[in-house]
């Protein structure tokens, strides 16, 4: 903010001394050049982002189900087919479960780690690196490694984490990743719903892997947020007799709200579009208990060659992410214009 004052106060050398005509021509050029500069990227974005969104929308209401394009209008038949299919209903449930638990897990573990690191521990930078490190890995690596960890060995010969579960007397967890059980499942459900409500157990190992990978990143965000809180505020609270918990609860935590919001946006759009982690860790199985729209879209489009239906999945995914992103963008825009 101090920079702003200086910028505005500094006179611009050369500008005021030029003759009027040259000056206005200069102004015009100066105005044109930025426009010229951004035109290529605007055109590129218009074509490659919005153009293709439009194209996908067109395909999603077409009859293009095969190698040969058929763009005749099919109405919302593809969407109807999706919404009534077992696999897609399962995908939507899984995405919601994954997003909710992944967000809660990453945010709480990230916050905890950040607060611990912020308490001026020795070797802070070492731990910071350690916690942040999983983020440097590709989701493919994470998925493969955690798949090995969770794979139950041959009967009676548990491997990986299952050995641990066996040792501590919880052999029931060994089959987590290979059963399609949904907890609690059962109960009442509407006629059109073909999949049981609840948390698919096989999703838990995937959520653990995702949290393992992204909580370090959340920690880094929170740590930056914590560092940005002026010490005076906390000091003042302490002088007023607040306990450390009260300082955290009523001073630190509220001031971290913008960080939380940013983290929710970043993590949320990762989880809504997740593909690589699940593809490598479970492949969407067992029986679509961990399947997500991203995998469905890929397989429908490129393995079954049902382009229209694949495009419809893509549009549904876009809408899901928009539900998260658009309010955020509006909020950002509003706060920015206020400023």
């Amino acid at each position: 903010m101090t920079g702003k004052v200086i910028e505005e106060a500094r006179p611009r050398p050369g500008v005021a001394t030029r003759p009027m005509a040259a000056r206005s021509r200069y102004r015009l050029v100066e105005r044109l050049i930025p426009i010229l500069m951004i035109t290529p990227s605007i055109i590129a974005i218009a074509v490659f982002v919005y153009g293709f969104i439009g194209w996908t929308t067109v395909v999603s209401v077409s009859r293009w189900q095969g190698i040969v394009p058929d763009l005749s209008f099919a109405g919302f038949r593809n969407y109807a087919a999706l919404l009534t299919s077992y696999r897609f209903q399962s995908d939507i449930r899984n995405t919601i479960v994954f997003t909710v638990f992944f967000l809660i897990g990453s945010l709480s573990i990230g916050l905890l780690l950040a607060v611990l690191l912020d308490s001026k521990v020795r070797g802070e930078s070492f731990f910071r690196t350690v916690y942040l490190f999983p983020m440097a890995l590709s989701f493919v690596v994470t998925g493969t490694v955690w798949q090995w960890l969770f794979t139950p060995g041959a009967p009676g010969q548990p491997t990986g984490l299952n050995l641990l579960f066996e040792q501590i007397g919880l052999p029931v967890f060994q089959t987590w990743s290979t059963v399609s059980h949904v907890w609690p499942g059962g109960g009442w459900k509407p006629e059109w719903l073909r999949v049981p409500f609840g948390v698919p157990l096989a999703m838990i190992p995937v959520i653990i892997a995702a949290i393992w990978q992204m909580s370090g990143f959340t920690m880094a965000m929170y740590l930056a947020g914590l560092r940005a809180i002026p010490d005076e505020l906390r000091e003042a609270a302490r002088v007023d007799g607040a306990s450390e918990w009260q300082v955290f609860r009523w001073i630190t935590f509220p001031l971290l709200q913008p960080v939380t919001l940013s983290a929710v946006i970043v993590l949320g759009h990762i989880s809504l579009k997740i593909f690589d982690l699940i593809m490598t860790q479970t492949g969407g199985g067992p029986g679509f208990a961990t399947d997500v729209p991203g995998i469905f879209m890929y397989e429908t489009t490129f393995k079954s060659n049902k382009y229209a239906e694949g495009a419809a999945v893509a549009i549904v995914m876009l809408l899901m992410v928009s539900v998260l992103i658009v309010p955020y963008l509006i909020w950002r825009l509003r706060t920015e214009t206020e400023r």
Partner: peptide, 13 residues
Amino acid sequence: TAYNNALNVFSAS
């Protein structure tokens, strides 16, 4: 794909 989907769901359920 549809046939495979059906049987993979069954394998688990």
